[in-house]
Design a binder for these strands. Structure first.
Lengths: 290, 290
DNA sequence: CTGAATTAATAAGAGTTTTTTATGCATAAG
DNA sequence: CTTATGCATAAAAAACTCTTATTAATTCAG
């Protein structure tokens, strides 16, 4: 009937999602002329204008939008059927992951090795980023899945809690010996919008300590190094600090707060790619155990 | 994700329906090695044995059957969406039509020209055949649509009445002048299983004539020539005889029977190809007018 | 049991698509 | 007005799919 392949329609979907041929080309790991050619092919095969060239961009025509809407669930169903048939062994492609630093350090090593083992055809592209940008990228389709700390909720986003990590007040052994948290100066924390920052403030208040000027650093690993060098104390996720606690570079300098940091995975709520959904499912399930 | 195209899955469906690679190759207008290659491609992409090579043929594995079942409605939906998007202008491919001789002469010229006009991409392959074989071919997937005379019903078939044609008793002018039907010898009719044959017998009985030995000929056009040459009389569909009545080669030799021959179109009831279904719809609708 | 016929796999070459690379043109933004 | 962005186009390169022959295995018939 047609010479149209699945990737022609997939191309259509991604142009519709991302808005431009260029973006779709990047998402699909190919070049913009290739996208142009595919669209031209579809339009000629169907005898139908799917895009209106407007200004320097393109917009879907009414019929084009209709076609995209009709095709999306069917395409998702097809890929899902193909995937299930092969027991997910045939899953292949690039999945773009966004992760916050803490979630990355805590969850990603385990997750990545599980993916490599069970879904060898799947390649992960991981970018560390701030929560706000991550969510934006996931919503816009630039990223497929986000691993992040702290509860997030947004229309258009589907999230699943994947676990918690305890927080511990740490300082270098010297600093701790000189009076613990009470005497530690300064207190470090990561940026305003992190859930750790909130717990830090709460902890200080509950300990009857003044919420002094708090130094911030947007990178936990760096902060670990700073504190270990004897400069102040900070509240760290236990998982990230464990190696330095073991080695004695850092020691607890105050009772741990009762609050924990919770981790979540997020995908677009209308995500239809079965590979992405399968990865989401696995992330949500496996991390409970891990 | 995959390099699989729609036609890969379509190939799978047709192999499943027809049972052999060869038959699928014929149905899809290609060669058997091409089918082999497509299957090999699918199996390697999915990492899954879809067919078990058994003896000199192949049979679906359990997973293969599951895949086929999952894909069929999705594929049908996709093609339907594509077709609707293009306002059916993009409809293309070969549709195999089986027709009885009378239905062919009465309905097909009109139908074919309508198809050529509205769905220029669609090619018709028409084979005239006997009713029984036609139905068998439609059920087995060798033919897509059948045009036939007389009511048929079968599980697995969907039919729609498309019109009636009157029957007339005709003979050559000489034979008619010599006493009409009463004197005409012999009476001709087409094969036992035709609805015309039944009406012929009924007519003779109601006219008080003995149901004499009836000559048969399985081809109406030929029978028209025989009767026109002055040999006996026969009951003809009015539409087919009209030209010879106009030219005076044949004349009525008895009052027409009240019974009519009704025409039907038939498709497999689980037909999923949107092009075939669209043609069926058009056949059923347009012929009421025609 | 042998020979003919049917069915699928394989190999090589031909032909067609599809992609890439490079470029041009139009539009929007600074 | 200049720069940057986004799509279209052209030609060459790369990739893919089909066809034609041929082989191997199996079934069926005499």
């Amino acid at each position: 009937m047609h010479k149209l392949a699945i990737y022609h329609l997939e191309t259509l979907l991604w142009i519709a999602r991302l808005g431009t041929f260029r973006a779709a080309a990047e998402r699909l790991n190919t070049t913009q002329p290739a996208i142009s050619a595919r669209v031209r092919e579809i339009e000629s095969q169907l005898g139908l204008a799917i895009f209106r060239r407007e200004g320097r961009g393109v917009v879907l025509t009414a019929r084009g939008r209709q076609l995209v809407q009709d095709c999306e669930p069917l395409l998702a169903g097809l890929e899902s059927a193909l995937l299930e048939a092969g027991g997910h062994a045939g899953a292949a492609g690039v999945v773009r992951i966004a992760a916050g630093e803490i979630a990355a350090a805590t969850c990603l090593p385990h997750f990545a090795s599980a993916v490599r083992k069970d879904l060898p055809g799947v390649t992960l592209h991981i970018d560390l980023d701030l929560t706000a940008r991550m969510l934006q990228n996931v919503l816009s389709g630039t990223r497929d899945i986000a691993f992040l700390a702290g509860p997030v909720a947004s229309p258009g986003l589907r999230t699943a809690r994947i676990g918690e990590v305890s927080l511990v007040w740490l300082a270098s052994p010297e600093t701790a010996a000189q009076g613990g948290l009470q005497a530690a100066t300064p207190v470090w924390s990561i940026g305003e919008h992190s859930p750790i920052h909130r717990v830090t403030c709460e902890s200080l208040q509950m300990a009857g300590l003044p919420v002094r000027a708090i130094n911030t650093c947007n990178n936990v690993a760096t902060m670990l190094g700073i504190v270990a060098s004897g400069t102040g104390a900070a509240l760290f996720p236990e998982t990230m600090a464990r190696p330095m606690m073991k080695s004695g570079a850092l020691v607890e300098c105050a009772p741990p707060p009762s609050s924990q940091i919770c981790f979540e995975v997020a995908v677009r709520s209308n995500e239809s790619d079965p590979v992405v959904l399968e990865l989401f499912r696995r992330a949500a399930m496996f991390s409970i155990a891990g």
